[in-house]
């Protein structure tokens, strides 16, 4: 699936709708340059799941976990920006979330940790077009 987002707001709105289809256990692998819309997308996913916390960048601590209040679901927000390989994520316990059926995992800069992608990972690519325009490409491996 491919779509064009005209603004950060639109990316956020699309992710919010996209989140409604998620059931748990999904791993969303976000790939794209600085400013391509990965964080806006993640904020949208959180909003779509009904998470009211402010979603701040996990670059520094690598992983932040948020509880979904209405359902027995959690959102694990991972940032691989500083990493070179997936085992660094496994060392901080990310593996528990990747394989958890009650957890939705979002990995920003996922191209840096390809070695830990599960088989059914959902790959979401972001490309900067002109100005605020972005191309978002979603590929499920099913």
């Amino acid at each position: 699936m491919k779509l064009i987002s005209e603004s950060e707001k639109e990316t956020y709105g699309f992710a919010k709708k996209f989140a409604k289809q998620l059931q748990g256990g999904e791993v969303l692998c976000l790939i794209g340059d600085l400013g391509a819309g990965k964080t806006a997308f993640t904020k949208g996913i959180a909003a779509g799941l009904g998470i009211t916390n402010t979603i701040t960048s996990p670059t520094f601590v690598l992983m932040k976990v948020y509880k979904v209040k209405s359902k027995p679901l959690a959102l694990a927000h991972i940032d691989a920006y500083r990493l070179r390989a997936g085992d660094e994520l496994l060392h901080i316990g990310a593996g528990d979330y990747l394989s958890d059926k009650d957890c939705i995992t979002v990995i920003e800069w996922a191209d840096r940790v390809r070695d830990i992608w599960p088989k059914d990972a959902i790959k979401i690519g972001f490309k900067i077009l002109k100005g605020d325009k972005r191309e978002i490409k979603i590929k499920t491996s099913k």
């Binding site: 600085l34 979603i55 701040t56 960048s57 670059t59 520094f60």
Partner: peptide, 18 residues
């Protein structure tokens, strides 16, 4: 109040890299 995305120090680190 707080940052709604990146921390100030993180912005410094990322721009330093750029």
């Amino acid at each position: 109040g707080q940052t709604i995305d990146d921390a100030a120090g993180e912005a410094f680190d990322k721009v330093g890299k750029l």
